[in-house]
Design a binder for these strands. Structure first.
Lengths: 262, 262
DNA sequence: CGCGAGTTTGAGAGAAGTCAAAGTGTGTGG
DNA sequence: CCACACACTTTGACTTCTCTCAAACTCGCG
């Protein structure tokens, strides 16, 4: 659409803003300083860059779509036109409920795939909304499906993406069913940390692009409970909070708190 | 393996045992009196019976496997050798946890597909255990994948199955995060009712093949809470309980109790 | 500088968990 | 065929965790 160069600013930055902490652990190969993720760590990578046929490579991604904070990528109940890969920024995936807000099924980070739930009926069951200014790669669904039919590896990759999401959803449900408020928050922070590490950023210090309420909507807690738990973790010295940035100070303690005994 | 004729007995029966209530609403086309589900309502149907190439039809299902109550179909951490369709009986799908029991992700009814989570890494992330004597159709994974690569419709069907499971998992997570104990039980009963209807059985009266504890492990509740809620529903006249059979007497009230106001 | 969205903290209420005991039904073995 | 044992369920009393309601606080922005 437009020149992606100016995306380097503001909300599109990586886990810790480039401003006051430019040094802390950002391994270079995956994460660009602009906050855009490299294609090599993207979940959609094999679809966009099928190595066996370079001719397709340029044509698969229809366009890059930019979203402003709060803008909706797709709505529940609408036909699935495309699947997406998050290139920069953050999004929420929400399972809408009768009373308005609904449950936040997952948070999307750069490199994550989105819109796969539409493979069920061709209608999206969830909605995705940008948390801040974001950019996604858009892959028309018909192209993905045609390609999947032609290239076995693409089909297998799509199955893998779906199955991985399914497994994560199961883990999330298990956490909601079995863990205390503190354990859910601890697991959430560790999970985010892990995902940043996989993307080549520091897993020790990152930004929380969502509000306390949105964390609560994800974890099945109220914003007050989330806030209290985080304050408690800070009081124990397990994390450090400043604005919307968090530093993991005692990963071991967080991890230990997940064990059944506690 | 063995003659499936003797499967008509005991635990393999449909939602209400054939014994004392042979008449109550069993529409004939899908549900056989033996408790085996007809292939027409099975989630795997297009895989087993690809209409365009009758030659494959007999070869896709490797074998029917019979399970005794408590027997494990597949374990978490083991390589996925096959995917399955439940032909008769009931199974639990569990996401194992450190402390042993783990969260019950879903209950499998006849016609349901199982083992799809293995598409992520080739290793099962969950385990499936028979609740009572059961029978499954086993489809070797390599055959499903080869077929998916050859026939576009098969690949699309697998994606559809995965995406549908994903959507259900999201709904389940939303229920755990947002609903009260009573609402979760009400939704669970309505969901089971719906699934029996889809299979050609009565949605008003069916058996609960799982214990209260297992219901609790699925709904994120203790067995005492499940029991209390069910007793309360019965006291209100919304359901009737006898042994492990349940009758829905006021579906409207159950459904209304899910609304936010309550 | 002051407004407003978001966050933190506190006090009290309510929902579900825990512990405990009694009740019910099933299946086994005498 | 009956009796007993065991597993599952039901019910009760009490505890605890999280929610709700409320108020103070912080920070970014106009």
């Amino acid at each position: 659409m437009t020149d992606p160069a100016d995306l380097a600013s503001a909300d599109l930055a990586g886990p810790a803003g480039p401003a006051d902490a430019p040094a802390h652990a950002r391994s270079a190969q995956a994460a660009s300083p602009s906050g855009q993720i490299a294609c090599t760590v993207c979940a959609m990578n094999p679809l966009c860059h099928p190595r066996s046929s370079p001719a397709d490579a340029s044509s698969l991604v229809e366009c890059r779509r930019r979203l402003r904070a709060g803008e909706t990528l797709y709505r529940a109940g609408t036909p699935r036109a495309s699947i997406y890969a998050v290139r920069a920024g953050f999004l929420t995936v929400r399972a809408p409920a009768a009373d308005g807000t609904g449950h936040i099924v997952r948070f999307l980070l750069p490199g994550d795939a989105a819109g796969l739930d539409g493979f069920a009926s061709g209608i999206h069951q969830s909605e995705a909304v940008a948390l801040g200014d974001s950019e996604v790669c858009e892959i028309p669904a018909y192209r993905a499906e045609i390609l999947a039919d032609f290239r076995a590896a693409i089909g297998a990759h799509l199955r893998g993406l779906l199955a991985r999401e399914l497994g994560e959803s199961h883990q999330h449900a298990a956490a909601l069913a079995r863990l205390t408020a503190a354990q859910r928050v601890a697991q959430f922070l560790l999970h985010l940390s892990q995902r940043w590490l996989e993307r080549g950023y520091s897993g020790c210090a990152f930004r929380l692009p969502m509000t306390r309420r949105e964390m609560g909507d994800h974890l099945g807690l109220t914003m007050e409970t989330v806030s209290r738990v985080m304050s408690d973790f800070q009081a124990r010295g397990w994390i450090a909070l400043a604005r919307d940035e968090v530093k993991i100070r005692a990963e071991g303690m967080l991890r230990a708190s997940l064990q059944p005994s506690k």
